[in-house]
Write a protein that binds this DNA or RNA. Structure first.
Lengths: 199, 199
DNA sequence: GTCCACATGTAACTGGTTACATGATTGG
DNA sequence: CCAATCATGTAACCAGTTACATGTGGAC
């Protein structure tokens, strides 16, 4: 149930139209909760139906015409309620770990390249976040809002740091492995080596 | 598309019935990819239909009777293909960050308690993983399989370490905030401009 | 014979993704 | 007028979750 509340937050920060929200979800908010415009429009419709937001007075009817929303008191209340309500932490789920466990059975061939690619991507993200931190959270920027948003950014930085370290570690581990991977003994490799893209 | 491949991996490690798989997904595999029995049965049906697995010969017809599966060569091939094929890293998405950003607008009241609760949960997980590491990956356990599975466990340990540190950091940050109150006052409802749209 | 644990499934719903459809505005 | 771009939306699908249904076999 995070998306509607992310939208409420964004609209409280600044009333916006669907497309403007989409852009903000590509920038700042999207760093920790991404959403496509289809999701956003659908959610805006629901939120309006529930009386949490409303279209700004200048509302013209329909398609092709910009339509901005603002949060109603009920929406702010709901957001405050949700924010303080207990929620369970979500388990860490990542396909990479499944692939690693699979590699322990069918061999590591090919996986290494993708790990290296991921490492590059995470290094890039980390650098990007570093830039943002320098630009937006220098000395003097320590209002309550600043500090809370800085905390979120720090999480991003720490997580990307984790990934880069873990991936480097995994790659050096790979180098010490018997080449091409592990016990494939006894089962035919059955051809298709080059990684042709089926289904 | 991870679940079917996690199941193929599990079945290669050891042919199993649906319920046995469910148990294994509660234990070791579930640490990095959880699944309910409903998901597993549905997926087993699909995998059988695609010719990736088959029911073991002792197959008796239907409900209430145990039915074990083994992986066919096509299944092993598909697993190897998927494991080595490039995939995009998934973005870090967590409701806590949405809540924190919301708290910057509607106030931090109540959130602090849940952060403390999360901290306890993550500390517990961390301790649990530490136990597993001591028990299952002591000296001498360094076959290729061991090392790959150890890598996965290390990821879990590092991620839980991240969470405990970040949450502690967040909590001390909270103490320095203008008391838990709804800092509505700070945010102009429509003005935008100022601090709203960074990072 | 009843109850409980084992075991396999169905159905309905939610949230997210992908592909596509349609109208309005503006610059050439 | 035409194309590009801004803007809002529909439809179909997929993975994961929750609730419920059904059958078997052993313990008492």
């Amino acid at each position: 149930m995070s998306l509607p509340h992310a939208i409420l937050t964004a609209l409280l920060e600044k009333p916006s139209s669907g497309l403007e929200l989409t852009r903000r979800f590509d920038r700042s908010i999207g760093y920790f909760w991404s959403a496509t415009h289809q999701q956003i429009y659908r959610e805006l419709g629901k939120l309006e139906g529930e009386g949490y937001i409303r279209a700004l007075p200048a509302e013209r009817p329909a398609r092709g015409q910009k339509k901005s929303y603002e949060v109603l008191p009920a929406g702010r209340e709901e957001l405050a309620r949700w924010t303080s309500a207990p929620q369970e932490p979500r388990p860490w789920r990542d396909a990479l770990f499944v692939r690693l466990r699979a590699a322990a059975v069918v061999g590591t061939t090919g996986l290494e390249d993708d790990l290296r690619r991921h490492l590059t991507l995470h290094e890039r993200k980390l650098a990007e976040y570093g830039e943002i931190e320098k630009r937006d959270f220098g000395p003097g920027r320590d209002s309550a809002q600043d500090r809370l948003q800085h905390l979120i950014l720090r999480a991003g930085i720490d997580l990307e740091t984790f990934w880069t370290q873990w991936l480097r570690n995994a790659l050096t581990e790979f180098e010490r492995l018997p080449d091409g991977g592990t016990s494939d003994a006894g089962v035919p490799d059955a051809g298709g080596g080059a990684g042709a893209e089926r289904a």
